[in-house]
Design a protein around this nucleic acid. Sequence first.
DNA 1: TTGACTCCTTGATGCAGATCAAGCCGAGAC
DNA 2: GTCTCGGCTTGATCTGCATCAAGGAGTCAA
Lengths: 245, 245
Amino acid sequence: MHDHSVHVQCGDCPIRHRAVCARCETDELTRLEQIKYYRSFQAGQTIIWSGDRMEFVGSVVSGIASLTQTMEDGRRQMVGLLLPSDFVGRPGRTTAAFDVTATTDVVMCCFRKKPFEEMMVATPHIAQRLLEMTLDELDAAREWMLLLGRKTAREKIASLISIIARREASLHLRRSAGPLSVDLPLTREEMADYLGLTLETVSRQISALKKDGVISLEGNRHVSIPDINRLLEEAGDDSDGGMLV
Amino acid sequence: MHDHSVHVQCGDCPIRHRAVCARCETDELTRLEQIKYYRSFQAGQTIIWSGDRMEFVGSVVSGIASLTQTMEDGRRQMVGLLLPSDFVGRPGRTTAAFDVTATTDVVMCCFRKKPFEEMMVATPHIAQRLLEMTLDELDAAREWMLLLGRKTAREKIASLISIIARREASLHLRRSAGPLSVDLPLTREEMADYLGLTLETVSRQISALKKDGVISLEGNRHVSIPDINRLLEEAGDDSDGGMLV
DNA sequence: TTGACTCCTTGATGCAGATCAAGCCGAGAC
DNA sequence: GTCTCGGCTTGATCTGCATCAAGGAGTCAA
């Protein structure tokens, strides 16, 4: 549990252009630089417990974290997947509403809550960017509601894979030479928690998609997609939306 | 389809203290007053079509509207219920992501999108309030994800009724003399769309809750709740959270 | 090498909720 | 009156996914 505290200049930060600080001018960045600090979390570690007092807010710099909710009897639902540049925490509220857990090793760029809130009032660029990001997340959450409420297990799996593929494509913006291929960053159980299924159903549906030639697997986690449009059809999304990126 | 255009001074507006303008100073309000206009919609009318260019944004002044998503084959999921003071539309995006429909007759306080966006840049109070409201909606959407992904039909119905009851209580903040009672603002089919069920299942589960004495019905739409804690148990929510208001 | 892990797959069975179908009730319209 | 029509209930049956259960494959450590 070594807190490997790397320190990076904001100018060199890999998430500089997408995170909550994306709109900041150089002087604003300098002030943020003064109050930021890095924290590392190991895969599996809980970053924030639901109901706890939130001491800090921050951005995921690298790795993947998940936002989950658990019922008393143990039923779990993942309500968000936090990727690099995503923001964690809620200015203006003192306790966390959901558990935040590191799915892989995670590095976060943190700010103590109070100073950050003060900065937000002073620098509209931060609040503007945060509003934009929050609206995007709200749209994403609402699309996920359609998936959870109305899609079949097969459609859910196809949707998840195509979302991960889309993200991959937007990140590496590789000229799609050859079949698209992605690594699943989640275990079967985590996928189940995200999709509102059991892990057995996830496994079965992945096998079925493989048998039907919609995807092929190399190992458990690596998926290649011979025909992305076929996958999108299986996902039951309004077609057209296919346009990667 | 008469556009019954009432005009109200912002100072007298029933949603003045909860809407996007809640934090505005008098001079800011004056400027909003100049660009606002009212529109009325009849129950059943579509306010905004998904995919359409958004010409305006605005607040629900009275009535209830719903935000829905529909798949090509007709499966529908309601992704939000818009009550008085809720904000419709998304500054910074040109096309609507979801259908907005009037569930009851609705009056909206509208702003053309462009002038509103300009105002938002100029007056941080509006952006601040909008951020706050959006964060609340995001939390609500995430709680709904737990409901859609993991709750049983019975729990879903109990959750919906208790949410409506909570709202009712917070609005009228009546000293709860006698059993709490509420009107369901939705048809069985709309409830089904909201909960990710069929209307038959909604009907059956309401009947079951009635048979078990958790609720009682007068007519189809009026529900009384002899014991709110019993209902909350049925909803499967973390207990304690019961505290109405 | 052998166990003990975790992660995953696959099979057999059961059940909650979907689907298909019929009919009730109250409100207009005429 | 009675016709229609939207909203609702209830019954019978079907089915997709959960549940229960067993075992495979890879990794790590002793």
